[in-house]
Computed example of a mutant assay.
Amino acid sequence: MKILTFTTLFPNAVKPNHAIFVETRLRHLVGSGAVESRVVAPVPWFPFSAKRFGQYGDFARVPAAEQRFGLDVLHPRYPVIPKVGMNAAPMLLARAARATVGRLLDEGFDFDLIDAHYFYPDGVAAVRLGQHFNKPVVVTARGSDISLIPQYKEPRKMIQWAASNAAAVITVCDALKTELVQLGADPAKITPLRNGVDLQRFRPGDRQALRGELGIDGFTLLSVGNLVTLKGHDLTIGALALLPGVSLLIAGSGAERQRLEALARELKVADRVRFLGAVPQAELGRYYGAADAMVLASSREGWANVLLESMACGTPVVASNVWGTPEVVAAPAAGVLMKERSARGVADAVTALRADYPDRAATRRYAEQFGWDATTEGQLRLFGGVIQRHGRRQ
């Protein structure tokens, strides 16, 4: 089958770690040999590429076309209107991508369906494109597109419209399916297909050697994620004040860094916090393997891939009890869920983990049940059924 993957959540040459989970799922699907794909991953238009313009300068440097792991990826530009453009975003995104999609068809890539990721604005735009080109659309809900954005009136209406007009919907956890149904979506259309973990890339290494190479000594926590408020890095830093002798590594970049550094100084734990900056995914396994626990204190998560990546390296996790996370951390070998999302909650969960620390081999075995094969098989069944039904209606 031929699919067109449509999403703004896709890595590129400038931001190779951006939404890498979408690319990873697609790579495994294409790797099955049953699917051919092209990717249309629009980026916001911006006229200047200088680094002083921050993320907008980054957008300007993204190439118009590139190839990643054998996948042809196109990056058409779409207009973004700051502050006032949220309601118009799906229309602007669909309109900007229409010529690119049409050109793919003209060049002979007559795809069978559109595989869209993230409901708003991407999924709404994808359903518009599907109607324009008479192609069925499958939208994957991934987290804040369902847990946060529907609180806004107009986006909620458009998400409900897209769910109703999509041929099928995938959610990365059961919790997101429940929320979509509460928004009025047809439960018969929704299939939960959780993310997997690359068990070859993320695997236990020589722990002592890794700790020596990375300069790690004593009980060490690792926190992985963009330095943004919802990730709760401030709570993990706050927990250090309640955990004498415990150190913290933070892998990620973002606007919150200065505030987090100031918080560490204020709490007098700066000597126990190390900011690593953005760490390439290929290097993350070394940090997972060297740490004693991975902490994720997010306020929202659909299906947090970092949890399984850590477990696959043999390192248990401490995580906030939100959305799909209880579906990931579902056994003692996996780690501990916080009883409350606070600095105290992080500290208490770390203390509980240390008091009954799981065998690292058992943590690895737990992660092994989350390979990508089941997800790939689920997509093939779902996509095949959608294409068959669409063909009968032609």
Results as ranks from 00 to 15, higher is better:
residue 202 F to N: 00
residue 166 A to F: 01
residue 223 S to L: 07
residue 378 G to S: 08
residue 278 A to N: 13
residue 206 D to N: 14
residue 294 M to V: 06
residue 137 V to S: 11
residue 10 F to K: 04
residue 35 V to S: 09
residue 23 E to A: 14
residue 328 V to D: 02
residue 310 S to V: 12
residue 341 R to T: 15
residue 322 V to I: 05
residue 370 F to H: 15
residue 226 N to L: 13
residue 146 I to L: 06
residue 227 L to C: 06
residue 15 K to L: 13
residue 153 K to P: 05
residue 204 P to S: 03
residue 124 V to H: 01
residue 63 P to V: 03
residue 159 I to D: 09
residue 322 V to A: 09
residue 245 G to F: 04
residue 323 W to G: 09
residue 44 P to L: 06
residue 17 N to H: 15
residue 324 G to Y: 02
residue 262 A to Y: 05
residue 151 Q to S: 15
residue 310 S to Y: 12
residue 36 E to I: 10
residue 213 E to L: 11
residue 102 G to D: 03
residue 341 R to F: 01
residue 87 N to G: 14
residue 97 A to R: 00
residue 126 A to V: 04
residue 240 L to K: 04
residue 1 M to P: 13
residue 262 A to L: 09
residue 64 A to N: 09
residue 291 A to F: 10
residue 297 A to C: 03
residue 218 G to Q: 06
residue 113 L to D: 10
residue 41 A to H: 02
residue 311 M to P: 07
residue 216 I to C: 02
residue 295 V to D: 13
residue 2 K to I: 15
residue 15 K to V: 09
residue 11 P to T: 01
residue 328 V to Q: 12
residue 255 A to H: 13
residue 222 L to W: 02
residue 307 L to T: 05
residue 363 T to S: 04
residue 310 S to C: 07
residue 335 G to S: 04
residue 200 Q to W: 14
residue 267 L to F: 03
residue 391 G to L: 12
residue 75 H to T: 07
residue 34 A to V: 11
residue 137 V to G: 12
residue 19 A to R: 02
residue 267 L to R: 10
